[in-house]
Design a protein around this nucleic acid. Sequence first.
DNA 1: CGCGACGTTGATTTGCCTCAACGATTGTGG
DNA 2: CCACAATCGTTGAGGCAAATCAACGTCGCG
Lengths: 192, 192
Amino acid sequence: MKIGIDAYIDRCISIRKDERTYFHSLLAERKVKKKEFLLKAGEICDWEAFVTEGCLRVFYMDENGSEVNLMFATEDWWISDLGSKIDQRPAELYIQALEDCSILIIKNKNKEELYARVPAFERLFRQLLERALSALQHRFVTTLAQSAEQRYEDFLKRYPDLPKRIAQHHIAAYLGITPEFLSKIRRRRVQG
Amino acid sequence: MKIGIDAYIDRCISIRKDERTYFHSLLAERKVKKKEFLLKAGEICDWEAFVTEGCLRVFYMDENGSEVNLMFATEDWWISDLGSKIDQRPAELYIQALEDCSILIIKNKNKEELYARVPAFERLFRQLLERALSALQHRFVTTLAQSAEQRYEDFLKRYPDLPKRIAQHHIAAYLGITPEFLSKIRRRRVQG
DNA sequence: CGCGACGTTGATTTGCCTCAACGATTGTGG
DNA sequence: CCACAATCGTTGAGGCAAATCAACGTCGCG
């Protein structure tokens, strides 16, 4: 049997049939209904998840209750709270479904075992992390250097399909601005 | 021979003596004078460097010439432009010495060979990347959620020794604010 | 010694936020 | 299937955090 995640794996590394079977045995499928939380701040996160269907958001909430969206995860994205996962301390992030989702969950313990038994996966995730870090570095410096309007333009260019799936105010929380201000940016764009 | 980087390695993985010797053979020592650039935007970055002495900054410069400091790297930090390194495209970051520095450079080709011959290093860097990504995620969301004054407090708490080594205006560029505004924050702090 | 880089201060401006109000859309229970 | 509530996007008035611009004293370095 070949499932959705295999195409993703094959793009990066090559593994034997028995290794793939073993890998599959470590994954647990799970459905997440729209608005349901996969993780809440304060919980311990002992897993990572691969999105096969749907869309989730990873966000931070400050003491006043205002939210910042760290990322949107659609098909083929991995999600977790890394800080919580690494040191087994309370999560500082929330993960919530924006649509009905299908995900594959791998527990820490199984992932460690996977690394030991099939070292190619250590390579896969090392490369994944390099790209994720590089992308976040880019986002960080441009967020500090550019205006909200420029950031919105960049967002549309980089993720042209997301606005169809995601509410406006979530995009605002991704850009680090209020929904009201995003609305005003959008008006300026169409008018001139 | 045991050099500075070994203590760092030993904290994460255990390797044999011959593996350590081999690892050393892949490193090239280099001195970087204060204000000298190790990398400029537009160049191709085909290496990573480990700081054994001194302090450098990694920064982004936008089209208007204003700078954002992505990180300060002191003893035991790794630095590179990951985006450029991964895809061999022009760097978008600058790396510049803030003090006279000693660094150890490992070229991409050698690093790939190292991963193949001593898989423990792939584990080392995978873990390093996980921590770096988690830390930057934290910094990103708190930067968007908090005021400049709160960010400055957090910076002082997390890096109490850095202000002694680094000019004020570089800290401002790290926080994403102007030197003038950091000066005003500091006045408010001491006065009340 | 003299110059340039640095930190500070003040006046003014601006990008974005807050709060409040309003239609439009969505969703939901009866 | 409808009625109503809740959520969402928009608009405007006013406010605040931080930027900009300009001026000045100090320090370190050539």
